Amino acid sequence: MDLPRIAPMLATPGALPPPGRDAAWAYETKQDGQRAMLYLGGDGGLVVRSRSGEDVSAAYPELRALGRALPAGRAAVLDAEIVVLDESGRSDFARLQPRMGLAGSPARARRMAVSDPVHAVLFDLVFLDGRLLTGLPWTERRQELEGLALEGPAWSTPRALVGHGEAALRATREHGLEGLLCKRITSRYEPGVRSKNWIKIRNMRTADIVVGGWLPGGGRLSGLPGSVLMGQRHAGGLRYVGSVGTGWSESERTALARLLHAAEIDDCPFSEVPPVAGAHWVVPRLVGEVRYAVRTRNGLLRQPSWLRLRPDLTPEESAADFE
């Protein structure tokens, strides 16, 4: 069956709906993975397309069996998030990253499917058996999706919770999950649109870090830090935990530049030299606070944003547990 190409609907960053409207919204766990549209042609085949529309099927060979999960002749287009799960069953983007971009390397993809298998989290159904479902409300699409009973070794259809948004958000925080998706239960599917009918709430953490270096900015930021290199005390040394280049106002970036220029040194202060080119090293005495999403398996802070300098803290107080 020829299936319509459908762009994924996108969520808008925001907050929980007001308590008085809570029952009008459904809540799903926000996964930390790669968004994908899955095309089941009814002949046992499966095409996986990324958010941009690129065919990435060859990167995820373990998902092929999903094409045979529906009876012969039944065709569907599913909206999903492709993740790699850690030992606790949480999505781990650091483990997924090596799997992404392997559409042109099928042999390597097959090897990695054994060591770091992916899992497709199915959360919407936009086409089924010749019917375009985008005009249906979320509740009806969800009912159709759950009716397919798509549960398998590399895919699942997690339940959504209608109402109880505060409890749902609290649960994601307590379990160390990335965040929450809030979906208006009357909402239609809007292909390619970043809609306020879907709201995403990301759980962010904060950390105290030591500045060990900086990278120059370009253009209007010439002479100013484009990003700073972060470290945290660990095992008697300063361990590199990534770089941060957002969160400053213009005046804050200028003030930070003066401090960094005054603290420049020749030798790298990190226990191991970070894999960055063109770095300027500094005496590791400036402590800052950053907001971030998760700590990756190799200790880096993902999606960091600068919050403020912490002159009240010493570098030794930036110690972190990396285990």
Rank of each mutant, 00 (worst) to 15 (best):
E62H: 09
P19Q: 08
G130V: 04
D124L: 05
P98F: 11
L128A: 01
Q31W: 15
A109R: 07
W25L: 02
D22G: 04
S88P: 00
Q34H: 13
Y27K: 04
S91E: 02
Q97H: 03
G130Q: 13
S50L: 01
S57K: 04
A36E: 05
G20Y: 03
R108S: 13
D79K: 06
R68Q: 15
D86H: 11
D86E: 13
V84Y: 10
D32L: 00
G41R: 11
D43F: 10
L96E: 10
G89E: 02
A103P: 03
G73T: 05
F127A: 11
P117S: 08
S115R: 15
S105M: 10
A94L: 04
G101C: 02
A113N: 12
A58Y: 11
A75W: 05
P106R: 09
Q34T: 11
K30T: 05
A24G: 13
G42Q: 00
T29I: 15
L63W: 03
P13F: 07
L38C: 06
D32T: 04
A75N: 05
P17V: 13
V56C: 12
L128Y: 08
L63R: 06
G33E: 08
A11V: 00
V121W: 01
D55M: 09
A109F: 03
P98V: 05
A107P: 01
V83L: 01
A58Q: 13
A76I: 03
R35A: 10
L38T: 04
D92C: 11
A72F: 07
R95V: 00
G67L: 02
R64T: 14
A58G: 06
W25M: 01
V56S: 06
G53S: 12
E28I: 02
Q31D: 14
D86G: 12
A72E: 14
L38E: 02
R131C: 01
L46H: 02
R49I: 00
A11E: 01
T12I: 02
S52E: 13
G67V: 03
M37Q: 15
R131Q: 14
I82V: 15
F127L: 07
A103Y: 04
A94N: 02
G101S: 09
A59Y: 01
P71C: 03
L40R: 12
G101R: 06
L122W: 07
S88H: 15
L70R: 04
P71Y: 07
L40P: 06
G44P: 05
G33K: 09
A109C: 08
D22C: 05
E81C: 07
P18N: 09
D43V: 06
R131H: 09
A59N: 07
M100I: 15
E81R: 04
D22S: 08
G89A: 00
V118T: 14
V56L: 05
F127W: 15
L70P: 02
H119T: 10
L38M: 11
M100C: 11
L63T: 05
G44D: 11
A69E: 10
T29L: 13
D116V: 12
L16H: 13
L70S: 07
G44M: 10
Y39M: 09
E81A: 10
S50W: 01
I82A: 05
D32R: 08
M112I: 06
M100Y: 00
L125C: 15
V84S: 06
G14I: 03
R95G: 13
E54H: 15
G33F: 02
